[in-house]
């Protein structure tokens, strides 16, 4: 357990960027953690519990974002969420990845 800020870089792989559906999945997962989780794109910071703030990032495909988490389960949150990014939020060209 640590109160230090954990962070890593993630890349948006979804062809349509961080759009409604991946953002929706991200909020669902982020809400399950106790820690504060945020994404940063070029100085703009989004709260991962707020779908609107995530969408406002307007992150397109191949966009690199900084993922930060602070709180009791921050390590786990970073691990799970960066995995979600690399697996394109279970979506490939709009269809479920099998």
């Amino acid at each position: 357990m640590t109160a230090a800020i954990q962070h890593c870089n993630v890349i948006v792989r979804n062809p349509e960027g961080l759009h409604m559906r991946p953002a929706h999945r991200l909020v669902q997962v982020a809400t399950g953690f106790q820690c504060q989780i945020e994404l940063e794109r070029a100085g703009q910071i989004a709260d991962c519990r707020s779908i609107l703030s995530l969408l406002t990032l307007g992150a397109p495909q191949d966009c690199e974002l900084i993922l930060r988490a602070q709180g009791p389960d921050a390590d786990e949150a970073i691990r799970v969420i960066s995995l979600m990014f690399s697996q394109q939020f279970d979506e490939e060209n709009g269809e479920p990845a099998t």
């Binding site: 909020v27 707020s50 779908i51 609107l52």
Partner: peptide, 12 residues
């Protein structure tokens, strides 16, 4: 359900 999330968005 994404629209529902928008409706209860904490920032909003």
């Amino acid at each position: 359900s994404a629209q529902l999330q928008v409706l209860s968005d904490p920032q909003l």
